[in-house]
Every structure is written in C-alpha cells, then in structure tokens.
Simulated assay, not measured.
Amino acid sequence: MVIPGIIVSINDKEEAVIIADATFFSNKTSQLNFWVSFPNSTGYEQERSVRFNEVVVEDEYFCTFTLKPIEGGFIKPIQFETQPLERMDEVHSFVFPREEFITPTSYPKGFITCVTPKVIFHNCKMHEFGYLGSPVFNFRGDLVAITYLDKGQLQAWTVKFLLTGILREKNRTLVSNGEYS
C-alpha cells in the first residue's frame, strides 16, 4: 500500500521535512513501516524506512519527520496556495497503484464540491486508501489541501487552515497567485 507524504520544506541540514497521515504512526508498537524513496539523477533512490522514534505525531491527523536524500538537489518543497477556494474550482490529486509502486500512476482532475472555513470536499479519483494524506493541488500545481477522510465524499484540510497550526513552523515557501513570500 502506498500512503503519500508531502515535502513541506527543506531544513538547514538539507533534510526534507515531510508531513504524512498519522494513522499508521499513532500506535508506536505497530509493526508497519513507512518507506521513502527520493528522486535522484537516475530515477529513484533505494527505499528507506522511517523509524517510529523519528516520527512526531502532531495531532490526530498528521505526523512529521525529516529524512535527508542520499543525492541532493532533486527534491523541492511543495508550494502552498493561500487564496480562498471556491466551489467548482478545478483540483487534482495523485492516484497511486495498490502495491509495489512509489510514484503516482495518474493525476486525475476533480472539482471542489463544498467549501468550509477549514475543510473542502472534492471528487478527485483516488485508490481506496488515498484519503490518508493525499495532496490536493490547483491547476498550477500548488497545494490547496490535504485529504484526510472519506465518508462518501472526500474531505481535505485546507492549506489556509493548516497554516494556522501544523504547517506554521514547517514551511518556507508560500505561493499565492504566483507570488512567492
């Protein structure tokens, strides 16, 4: 099973600061592993597991951890869109295959079906566990939300809401209408 993690910044040690769904990290006695593989000059590095003692469970939904790529220069942090979202805005999300693949197989288009101050509902296609931390992007590729729940409709925390909490100290680059800050 592939559970996505999102690189939200690169710290001073050139480590990727990654946010992921906390579901599999909430129980420190779990035997599950989270595997990471960064891009490099020839494709992807060998997968490495993240040890549970390296994971910080931030809240009931998200955890963070850092990991340094073996070969630097091939990763960049995600850019955050901070403009208000509206119903029927076009969004995209990743679809991962069910097993044995670390890269998404498609980038399907969907639409925001409902907007609240903290959450959007969207209809992007996903695999059965895709709601566990899948990023939601606008047409420019900027992060607008992170999916956390599937109750008949996919629900995602908006970047604007996440920036008041978990992302506040984890990011360096924001984007809004193409302007960096």
Rank of each mutant, 00 (worst) to 15 (best):
I70V: 15
G152E: 04
E99D: 10
L85N: 00
Y44G: 00
N171D: 08
T164M: 06
P135W: 00
A145T: 04
E179T: 15
E71G: 07
E81N: 04
V91Q: 02
V136Q: 01
P108E: 13
T116S: 15
F24L: 13
K118S: 15
V55Q: 06
L163Q: 05
Q83D: 07
K13T: 13
L85H: 00
N138T: 07
I112G: 03
F65G: 05
E54V: 09
G130K: 02
G133C: 04
I70L: 14
T113Q: 04
G141F: 02
G5P: 07
M126G: 08
M126A: 13
S181M: 15
E81K: 01
G110Q: 05
R172V: 08
F111S: 10
I102W: 07
S93Q: 08
Y180G: 14
I166Q: 04
N138D: 12
F25Q: 09
D12F: 13
F94C: 09
G73L: 05
I10Y: 10
L67Y: 13
A16Y: 10
Y44A: 02
V159Q: 01
Y131I: 03
T116L: 11
S134R: 05
V36S: 03
L149I: 06
E86W: 08
K109I: 12
G178K: 06
F65P: 01
F94V: 06
